[in-house]
């Protein structure tokens, strides 16, 4: 799956997982995850949903490298390649 396809799917998972309203259409892939306004529990919820949607597992060090939505999409793209 290429990064664009992953990004699209990721956007869909985030939309379903998020308990708050975001302007998804204008969400930039280079937006830092921290800037999405999720607290730690919401991010854990999201990561669980991403694991299930993409069938991947995370190691703590993988997660530490992810800064932006694009980083996450690229990571998932590599894992699902």
């Amino acid at each position: 799956m290429d990064t664009t396809a992953v990004l699209e799917r990721l956007r869909e998972v985030m939309r379903r997982s998020a308990q708050k309203t975001l302007d998804w259409e204008h969400l930039d892939a280079d937006t830092p995850i921290d800037a999405l306004g999720f607290d730690s529990l919401a991010i854990l919820d999201l990561l669980y949903d991403i694991q299930q949607a993409f069938g991947v597992s995370f190691e703590p060090e993988d997660l530490m490298k992810v800064q932006t939505v694009r980083d996450l999409a690229e990571f998932l793209g590599r894992r699902t390649a």
Binding site: D39, S40, I43, L63, M64
Partner: peptide, 14 residues
């Protein structure tokens, strides 16, 4: 608790 920076928690494990 309720830290907005998840990296602090995950970083501890890493």
């Amino acid at each position: 608790k309720h830290d907005t920076d998840i990296r602090r928690l995950i970083g501890t494990l890493k």
